[in-house]
Design a protein around this nucleic acid. Structure first.
Lengths: 226, 226
DNA sequence: TGATGTGAACCCATTCACAGCC
DNA sequence: GGCTGTGAATGGGTTCACATCA
């Protein structure tokens, strides 16, 4: 026990750390050595108090009157997020999306390795996707163990997403990234995050509609072609 | 004025409405006529009070002692989100991602039409992607006007994302869905939503690391192979 | 009776404002 | 002097619990 007392960091703050991290890596590429909370806030599109509060959860890594050392802060955030180690992921579903994800090197980037790709379709098993041979989904539990896989990506059609989640959970995987347009039912201890373009578009639709109504437009069902 | 008094609906509630909508459409496909807040909550993975509160922002559409009429509630949520009309979107960037988005019919679904695809690369202009001819990004403002486009999707490489956003804003587009791993700087009135797999994975990494530490593991940089 | 709709209580997140330190 | 770090104040969102009504 007592590796680190590990203060509880609010979920909202955690979700912003990767944003700061990305900005810091850009700054490092530009050989900027130090950054203030004001600058970082500007670049991250949030306010400075939030940046300072978020960073203060990690510890006191800044220098009063000066700012934060870019490299040091990068290291600390990576450490906090667990990005100083490699995580093995499995992609469930070797269709279009699964293949795209496995091949898109820019997405599965430093720190994440596609250790396995599985599918329930026997005709796909054995083909090569993103540098690994596709295995049958029944082998998942065994693969997860032997390859130390902790994160699963669901890239199946909607109707198979829940079954995919069940298999992942049974294989002992605790974190799931869900690309299927489906609400997954999983034990409370499992973390699920969702990537869903349709949802995002529908939310934007709302704000566009508000804008339209504010302008006084009255789009009675179908906007006229004139 | 006074199209609808339009009460302010909390952002958090808005972001859940598309989830309810999707569940309702599944229920409708299964020919379920009524649903209670308890059932809906279970299917949406939230608690029942939240469902009732969210829905109450739209009006009193349920029946006490009974529940909600699936079709009627669907209609009301669609209406609230502006999904009873068609939105035209432009995709900026005709590379791999842009092409995938334009072609993936399941993503650009009912209510959204890919009215234009633009790119800054002249060699791509004129090719056909997702049923439309790619136009040069300089034509965007003109296209936005003539085709009544309100939503832009950024599918460019990171280094061009801000320029893409600038062009969209200048063209009068008020809502942006950003697939590039970049924080966009836009006027406050513009709504931006982000789809970013790498960010999501990094957040999951954090929770896996917490789990690992809770188990007492001590993965000193590289986990040993034993 | 049973489920909605909603004020009130609670809780988490954001922002303020300034003490503390370089 | 300037910027961090952080208690305190504020605000928004969630949950509770019950009055209300079919």
């Amino acid at each position: 026990m007592a590796t680190t007392p590990r203060r509880r960091i609010p979920e909202a703050a955690i979700s912003r750390l990767p944003v700061y991290l990305r900005i810091l890596s850009e700054l490092e590429a530009e050989e900027v050595a130090r950054v203030s909370s004001d600058e970082l806030a500007e670049l991250a599109g949030v306010n400075a108090a939030k940046v300072r509060k978020d960073l203060s959860y990690l510890g006191s890594f800044g220098t009063r009157g000066v700012g934060y050392e870019v490299k040091f802060l990068t290291y600390q955030i990576q450490r906090e997020l667990g990005l100083n180690q490699t995580w093995n992921v499995v992609i469930v579903g070797a269709g279009n999306l699964g293949q795209a994800l496995a091949n898109y090197g820019g997405i599965i980037q430093r720190g994440f390795t596609v250790a396995a790709v599985v599918d329930n379709d026997h005709s796909k098993v054995g083909t090569e996707v993103g540098g690994v041979r596709v295995r049958h989904v029944e082998e998942l539990a065994q693969l997860a163990q032997s390859k130390d896989i902790n994160i699963g990506i669901i890239a199946t059609p909607a109707q198979h997403a829940q079954a995919a989640a069940d298999v992942l959970v049974k294989a002992g995987i605790g974190s799931i990234l869900n690309f299927a347009p489906t609400v997954l039912s999983v034990p409370r201890s499992v973390h699920v995050r969702k990537v869903d373009m349709a949802l995002e578009l529908q939310i934007l639709s709302y704000y566009e509609q508000v804008r339209r109504q504010a302008r006084g437009d009255n789009p009675s069902e179908q906007p006229a072609s004139a």
